[in-house]
């Protein structure tokens, strides 16, 4: 039972990550490969403030989300006018820089040794001891993120995002401030990714840089794309599919040493296949 709850916890974490990335990729047409970096910023922010400054769980989550917003400005503020794949390359570069910061700034992050001893989640002083309670917490967070995202997607703001996705020039000519909108949606996406990071930290109670590499970013991106970007349920499906695929492949009798590479190949092929199915763009209204 615990194992299934653990898989559920992972699923909720990834659901938050995919939903927040989809705000960028699916709804706004902004291909980002820096999501794992934002995830990591949230995780480390929570880890640092709760271990060094003894901040409570709720406090550390809030601070982590703030950190996510601030770092997202590094992506959105300078990237005015950057199109499609150039934007992607920018996020790629920033992802690498973020990883090196996490891995290299020993004083702050512990470097490769990471930070251990992060306290378990505690809501208003009551510590969550059982896995069931933690799962419930994560489920609620995922639910909130999902609801908020859906709200955004169907709101007037969401319509501007969709217009941005289709044609930025036209949107601008219609009087919409695309730059400002981009900054806002990046901030939201970053905050949610950081939320997932904070939850992750408190759950595993140990963070190290290896969980926040560009490979992880590509994984999250793959989940979003496979599930169907720009749709409401798409990110959820993507998260379910790849989380359970990862576990399921373990059980099928492939020699363990090959399984990891085979799984990656499956992701790669799936990515290519999806592009064949939706060549015109990542989203479809």
């Amino acid at each position: 039972m615990d194992y299934l709850l653990h898989v559920l916890v992972l699923f909720f974490l990834y659901a938050i990550l995919t939903t927040s990335l989809d705000l960028l990729v699916g709804h706004s047409g902004l291909l980002s490969i820096a999501h794992a970096g934002l995830y990591g910023i949230g995780a480390y922010a929570a880890a640092i403030v709760s271990t060094h400054f003894d901040i409570s769980f709720l406090g550390s989550v809030a601070i982590a989300m703030l950190a996510g917003v601030l770092v997202s400005f590094c992506i959105s503020l300078p990237s005015r006018g950057l199109k499609g794949d150039y934007f992607a390359v920018l996020t790629f570069a920033l992802q690498m820089v973020l990883f090196h910061l996490l891995n290299g700034w020993d004083r702050l992050t512990g470097g490769p040794l990471g930070i251990s001893g992060i306290p378990a989640p505690a809501v208003f002083g009551a510590e969550l001891d059982t896995l069931a309670e933690t799962t419930l917490l994560f489920a609620s967070c995922a639910g909130v993120v999902f609801a908020l995202s859906r709200n955004v997607a169907t709101s007037p703001f969401g319509r501007v995002l969709h217009a941005l996705r289709e044609d930025e020039g036209l949107t601008q000519s219609l009087g919409k401030h695309t730059y400002r909108v981009t900054i806002q949606v990046c901030a939201m996406s970053g905050a949610f990714a950081a939320l997932a990071g904070a939850l992750y930290s408190h759950y595993i109670t140990y963070v190290d840089p290896t969980g926040f590499t560009v490979v992880e970013s590509i994984l999250i991106l793959a989940m979003v794309i496979l599930g169907g970007p720009g749709t409401i349920l798409g990110p959820i499906i993507g998260a379910i599919s790849l989380v359970s695929l990862a576990e399921a492949l373990r059980f099928i009798g492939i020699p363990a040493s090959e399984a990891a590479s085979l799984r990656q190949i499956v992701y790669g092929l799936a990515l290519i296949a999806i592009v064949f199915l939706r060549p015109r763009g990542l989203a479809r209204a």
């Binding site: 299934l4 499906i237 379910i240 359970s244 399921a248 373990r250």
Partner: peptide, 14 residues
């Protein structure tokens, strides 16, 4: 189909 498949896979393997 996807959701059902995922659930089935997990339960079966479990």
């Amino acid at each position: 189909v996807v959701v059902a498949a995922a659930v089935v896979i997990l339960l079966v393997t479990y």
